[in-house]
């Protein structure tokens, strides 16, 4: 039982990292209408940017800011150089998915070519481990969870209380109508790429901190978990993504306490399949 309690705590940490990435992904998808499978590659790109900063003896948390900037710039460039031109030519959704898949491989292989195939680690003090009723969490994990809460609250504030957030929602709902209402949709979309790219950079860095050791391929499976969280919550639903992240994160870790650990992702995705079978639009998606 104590292992299950510990696993629940570990699941919360996984959920925290997953939530930052999933909310960024779903926000990007919702506003830009691009299912950007290169999101994971942008994450690992950001993680390596933070690594480059960290190996200079600078705090990884400063490195995370550099990763956010790098993720934002890379995402804006991806949109301007690749996605937007394809969209202008009215490429089909499956074409866009394949394009994003190609970008994933280009970015990952590029990072691997530069960084080598060797796993690396940040120089970061994990701090002491706290034991709260069987929940074993170290200081860095608590920081990551706090960071996730801040990102979630900031996302809520952005969407609900700011002009930009309202413009993003309007653009997501109906781009043409938003344009007719005076919203500069293309500018909103560019800003969305920048904001969600920064979230990818942050997610990549906290994931790499959490992993302890990472390489250019470390987000491969994580991207699938992001997709699972997003579709479990309902695509385009930031709060759904948060909920999906918590369910996927916790079910993954807790199941490992009861079954052979290499099946833990099977359990997580079974949960996804069952939920989607019952509610195809996702937990917070709208019913037809």
């Amino acid at each position: 039982m104590s292992l299950a309690v510990s696993a629940f705590g570990f699941g919360l940490v996984t959920a925290a990292v997953l939530a930052i990435a999933s909310v960024g992904f779903t926000l990007q998808f919702g506003v830009t209408d691009v299912l950007n499978l290169a999101f994971g590659a942008v994450m690992i790109f950001g993680a390596f940017v933070a690594y480059l900063v960290n190996v200079q003896g600078i705090s990884v948390w400063i490195g995370m800011l550099a990763a956010m900037a790098a993720g934002a710039v890379l995402s804006v460039l991806l949109n301007a150089g690749v996605y937007a031109p394809f969209q202008r030519r009215r490429a089909s959704p499956i074409t866009m998915v394949i394009v994003s898949l190609g970008l994933t491989l280009i970015i990952e292989f590029g990072v691997q070519a530069l960084a080598g195939g060797v796993a690396v680690s940040y120089n970061v003090n994990q701090g002491r481990t706290f034991d709260a009723g069987g929940l074993l969490l170290n200081a860095v994990e608590l920081v990551i969870m706090a960071l996730a809460v801040v990102v979630m609250l900031a996302t809520h504030a952005l969407l609900r209380y700011t002009r930009l957030g309202k413009a993003m929602r309007a653009t997501a709902a109906n781009r043409a109508l938003a344009r007719n209402c005076g919203i500069r949709a293309s500018r909103v979309i560019t800003i969305t790429w920048a904001v969600t790219g920064a979230m990818a950079g942050m997610a990549g860095t906290v994931l790499a901190i959490d992993l302890g050791s990472f390489d250019a391929t470390s987000t491969d499976l994580f991207l699938i978990m992001i997709l699972a969280a997003v579709f479990l919550g309902g695509p385009g639903q930031p709060y759904g993504a948060m909920l999906g992240a918590v369910i996927i994160g916790i079910s993954t870790e807790v199941s490992a306490a009861f079954i052979p650990a290499d099946y833990k992702y099977v359990i997580a995705f079974l949960v996804l399949l069952i939920m989607l079978g019952v509610r195809p639009s996702g937990l917070l998606g709208e019913r037809t």
Partner: peptide, 14 residues
Amino acid sequence: MKSFTLGPAAAAAG
């Protein structure tokens, strides 16, 4: 929190 639906989510329901 109120649930916001961004564009494609509506379509996700069919």
